[in-house]
Design a protein around this nucleic acid. Sequence first.
DNA 1: AATATAAGGTGTATTTATTACACTAAGTAA
DNA 2: TTACTTAGTGTAATAAATACACCTTATATT
Lengths: 231, 231
Amino acid sequence: MKTTLPKFDSVFSIDCVIFGFDEGELKILLIERNEEPFKDWWALPGYIVEQDESIDNAAERILYELTGLRGIYMDQFYTFGDVNRHPQGRVITVAYYAMIRLNGTKDLKPVSNYASKAVWTPVNDLPKLAFDHEKIFTRGFEKIRNKISYQPIAFELLPEKFTLTQLQHLYEVILTKKLDKRNFRKKMLNYGILKELDEKQKGVSYRAAKLYKFDRRKYAKLFQKELTFGK
Amino acid sequence: MKTTLPKFDSVFSIDCVIFGFDEGELKILLIERNEEPFKDWWALPGYIVEQDESIDNAAERILYELTGLRGIYMDQFYTFGDVNRHPQGRVITVAYYAMIRLNGTKDLKPVSNYASKAVWTPVNDLPKLAFDHEKIFTRGFEKIRNKISYQPIAFELLPEKFTLTQLQHLYEVILTKKLDKRNFRKKMLNYGILKELDEKQKGVSYRAAKLYKFDRRKYAKLFQKELTFGK
DNA sequence: AATATAAGGTGTATTTATTACACTAAGTAA
DNA sequence: TTACTTAGTGTAATAAATACACCTTATATT
């Protein structure tokens, strides 16, 4: 990494922590960098914000260019502004996260050639990352762990139809702890935000489980109620 | 505001929402700007981040220069990056908040002359603010409203010794709703994070109330426990 | 056809937290 | 002494969280 690089003054960048759930594992999207610094390293998808675009738009564009993923809604979660986090100059980066449904989506094709590939990587098996991206990932993971206890974000990660065991498993992976099956089901079903389908799991070599759907309408109602606390 | 101003490319800035509680009112600190653009307008204390300082340090420095307040611990809560939020160029601003104990602290003296004064202003009676500072304030207020339901931030705003009624009143102001006196007391005392003092309120023209202190040690223990959820 | 395997699916009792609700006690001021 | 103002207190009902173990059902194997 001792090449001569241009120096620049101040730029903003965006970095994205994109979560997916596949084969029972929580994964994030990493790119292999095709540019100095940190050429050939793994990194979070991220790049520099243009002069004339808002940071929210920049986040969407950058994710698209580096992974081919389009129209993904992301939320900002933290801004990293240490002085030496980028070797070429002062770069303050705004970190975004999103959760997406993998549905067997496999490898992704970067549109720009700034990344050579984009690969889903299990969070329990991450390689060393460029810049301070480990720190950014860790904070993003904390964010969703925290968020899952008051918002049904799990449904964004699962396929449209899922079993209660899959749902529980996802919660366990995000919370990093085991949950009690009966209590978990009681609680989930009590919220009333699940629609039981007339359909069962297929292709498993054991008793097939019932499939459920997330009911957005009922969730909206529930949430409305929860915003108006009792006294 | 039709003066000729220098244009610049990209800069980062910091804006601070500093909460205080005084005379039964929740207040924030505003400065009167002494520079274009928005000269003579009210604004959140904020300024530009230097090349060689981290954003956390910048936040501390800027608050000091504009208000004379020193060593205030602040938390970042959101970054505002719309393209046209600043008339002179592209400015992305990282917003911080803090809560401080007023203890009769009155007016504050800006150290830099970029602000002509710094004044505590009730949140229910804010003037029109420069830039997008209303938006920033609103988001900061939401942030503490949300935070108060899982962290005892109220104690940072109250004097060291306080009555339960004062504590309740502060909760009511932040949550913007009335609370039941008996339930509030039961709950607070149950947490076990209050130390009852052998002392009473003074100088009131009615029955004096007992004074309490916040017990940080017990809170630390409680918090530890809460981080390890049941199953 | 019988058996083994592997996950699916279910209920109850206990404890803890939340809510609703109204009167007496104590100190100060007139 | 009286009026005023806030302090301070308890209980019953309801709802939520927890701990805990066995039978059922579909598939695969012999």
